[in-house]
Design a protein around this nucleic acid. Sequence first.
DNA 1: ACCTGAACACCGTTCAAGT
DNA 2: ACCTGAACACCGTTCAAGT
Lengths: 230, 230
Amino acid sequence: MATELQARPMAREPLSKDRVLRAAVALADGGSIESLSMRKLAHELGVVPMAIYKHMANKDELLDGMVDVVIGEIDPPLTGSDWKSAVRHRILSARRALLRHPWASGVIESRRTPTPVVVEYMDSMLGMFRSGGFSVDLTHHVMHTMGSRVFGFTQELFNDPPDGDPKTQATMVREMAATYPHITELLLAISHDRGSVVGPGCDDQFEFEFALDLLLDGIERLRQQGGVQA
Amino acid sequence: MATELQARPMAREPLSKDRVLRAAVALADGGSIESLSMRKLAHELGVVPMAIYKHMANKDELLDGMVDVVIGEIDPPLTGSDWKSAVRHRILSARRALLRHPWASGVIESRRTPTPVVVEYMDSMLGMFRSGGFSVDLTHHVMHTMGSRVFGFTQELFNDPPDGDPKTQATMVREMAATYPHITELLLAISHDRGSVVGPGCDDQFEFEFALDLLLDGIERLRQQGGVQA
DNA sequence: ACCTGAACACCGTTCAAGT
DNA sequence: ACCTGAACACCGTTCAAGT
């Protein structure tokens, strides 16, 4: 009987780097990044914490691998179109990947040195500008200007979920108007567009594309002028 | 004797919210944000960890307070100048504050709901656009476009400190050129400007202002056109 | 040789016991 | 009533003991 019970180690698929990564991504997708600990991940995989360290040197390597998974979901560059729409499509594809994995932007930010996968992504992004006729110098500045947008995100400074019933919200608005007149004015304008007292916040996709296009237009103008100094 | 020893509680200045905050900022300035723990902070102040909780509800409140200290160091808005230079000066002042406290950008990012001090800062920034002739709508989009730049920082995606002697660097460059042609090209161009094989990285201040001015120019253009739809 | 439980050195925070 | 040491519920990771 004891033999019977122990004779089924086939039941648990052997651990592998890939299986660890998939479980980690799923765990982070399901909760937040704070819910991802080596111990919980091990538990999820049905192994002892130390078993993970057979496939990952440490937690940093795990996080790097998770970033690589997300970067791997970004569409390859379009070919046969102008630089602007090619870059635009790629960045919006990156954004879709990031939205599927809300924890990813924070983890990307936190990495100190990029993985080869990330470096490859940036190299190909640089290549899109270069083959669009940008000088090396301008390409450099332009990448700095895009910042984290090349990965499909910008620092959303504060995501305040407004709650409470309409009545208390109305008095809150009145109080706020005295202290923060411009913010109140803006909040009311947004809400009016949506027909609610205090709306569900901004249309992030619209704002992302608004800023992206403003940048792309400005960048195209620089390209036509032939560089920075003009 | 024992009375003597215990009779000098005056020696240690009584704890206060302000003193806790100053110690926390100093501790974070000295090391990294990771070196800031409630326990270490208590040790630094010469008190038992729990003593801090008399003045701070928890660590989040501590971090909020630290952000407020940094925001408090930003110059008030210029008066009597056009919107563009007023905004530009304010943002560059914010940047100087952030550079004095390298941990601050990360902490600002991590906050879920802004403190009154932060909201006040954003309100006054909105006010600068409004009195510059921007519509409420355009002000809204423009703030999204600026993103974390209104606080004087952008996500520096990777700060790679290149090290090693020139010889190994030279072979590294050769290997890299095969895999990452565009990055290598760019690195060499930067290094050439500085007269080193692999330079000490980018001129962050230049890049920040380059992007800032590109944005401000694009934004001014929108303002002249009278809004988004034009 | 391999695997893993216990241990180490930390966290933020609660809570009850002592003064 | 006030203060605080011990304890709780976690971490990531090391290490030695057991098979």
